[in-house]
Amino acid sequence: MGGGLTLYSLKGRDLLCLTDYAPWEIRAIVEAARMMKERFYAGERVIPVLRGRSVALVFEKHSTRTRVSFEVAAYQLGAQSLYLGWDQLQLARGEPLKDTARVLSRYVDVIVARVRRHWELEELARYADVPVINALSDLSHPVQALSDMLTILERTGRLGGVKIALVGDGGDNVFHSLIVAGAKLGMHVAVATPRQLRPREDILRHAIEWARETGGSVEVTEDPFEAVRGADVVYTDVWVSMGQEDVAEEKRRILRPYQVNERLMDAAGDKAIFMHCLPAVRGEEVTEEVLEGPRSVVWDQAENRLHTQKAILALLAP
Rank of each mutant, 00 (worst) to 15 (best):
257 P>F: 08
196 Q>E: 15
217 S>L: 03
193 T>V: 06
131 P>H: 00
274 F>E: 00
149 M>W: 10
262 E>T: 14
87 D>K: 12
148 D>F: 07
300 D>S: 07
84 L>I: 03
225 F>E: 05
45 R>E: 13
44 E>M: 08
186 G>A: 15
71 E>L: 00
219 E>V: 12
190 A>P: 01
45 R>D: 01
21 Y>A: 13
126 R>V: 10
147 S>E: 11
68 V>F: 13
262 E>A: 01
156 T>E: 10
126 R>P: 10
211 A>E: 11
90 Q>G: 00
159 L>V: 04
245 E>H: 11
54 S>N: 12
307 H>F: 12
289 E>I: 06
212 R>S: 14
154 E>Y: 11
71 E>A: 01
241 S>I: 03
272 A>L: 05
168 G>M: 02
103 V>S: 04
247 V>F: 01
82 L>H: 14
26 I>Q: 00
289 E>W: 05
316 L>N: 00
311 A>Q: 07
152 I>M: 12
237 D>M: 07
297 V>A: 02
223 D>F: 11
211 A>Y: 03
275 M>H: 08
271 K>Q: 14
281 V>S: 13
187 M>S: 04
133 I>Y: 06
15 L>T: 09
141 H>Y: 10
123 E>R: 12
35 M>Q: 12
270 D>P: 13
299 W>L: 14
165 A>T: 06
140 S>N: 10
228 V>C: 07
154 E>S: 06
132 V>C: 07
30 V>N: 04
180 V>E: 09
219 E>D: 09
271 K>N: 15
12 G>N: 07
22 A>T: 11
246 D>R: 15
179 I>Q: 00
167 V>M: 05
26 I>Y: 00
232 D>H: 11
238 V>I: 12
23 P>V: 15
168 G>K: 02
259 Q>S: 04
3 G>I: 14
78 G>V: 09
115 V>Y: 09
212 R>H: 13
192 A>K: 07
309 Q>L: 05
258 Y>R: 12
282 R>Q: 11
86 W>I: 08
297 V>N: 00
296 S>I: 08
206 H>P: 00
192 A>F: 02
210 W>C: 04
261 N>S: 10
314 A>P: 05
246 D>T: 04
217 S>R: 09
